[in-house]
């Protein structure tokens, strides 16, 4: 089997990388991190998978169509949170309206979690989309063909 050590290492590392991405995603309120970083780490796990098993295998696991949908849903999650707070009677992204009776600004926590989730989803799927499109291209264009 080709590149056995890399394949085994990737298999071992894949789940911890995803777990770390989720930790960074949901721990953004309390420590360094947030949606942007978590999304990138999430995408890196799949890029590592593509390096060791080939792009076609990764595309079987996460097809491009799913990524396109995730990109849109991620952005809509963010915008939707903003619109939801407007419907609740506050400004755009005025999270306090989510839980107005809270004494410790629980609405801010919920709002930040929601928009960070949207950011993470959008970033992760966009990074993977860009990677798919760069790597999936046939590298047969000569300098003279442009």
């Amino acid at each position: 089997m080709e590149r056995l050590i890399l394949r085994v290492t990737t298999k071992l590392l894949f789940a911890p990388i995803i777990l770390f991405a989720l930790y960074v995603q949901f721990h953004g309120d309390y420590g360094p991190g947030g949606g942007f970083q978590a999304g990138v780490i999430f995408a890196v796990a799949f890029i590592l998978h593509a390096f060791c098993y080939g792009l076609d295998e990764t595309k079987k696991a996460v097809p491009q169509k799913a990524l396109t949908v995730a990109m849109v849903i991620g952005l809509l999650f963010y915008v939707g949170t903003g619109v939801a707070t407007m419907l609740l009677g506050a400004n755009l992204l005025g999270y306090d309206s989510i839980d107005p009776d809270s004494t410790h600004h629980a609405g801010q926590h919920y709002g930040i979690l929601l928009v960070e989730w949207g950011v993470g989803m959008c970033v992760a799927s966009t990074m993977m989309t860009i990677f798919y499109h760069f790597t999936g291209r046939e590298p047969d264009i000569n300098q003279e063909d442009w």
Binding site: Y30, Q108, E116
Partner: peptide, 8 residues
């Protein structure tokens, strides 16, 4: 905001 991480 009552969030420990000011950057967030």
């Amino acid at each position: 905001i009552a969030v420990p991480n000011i950057v967030t």
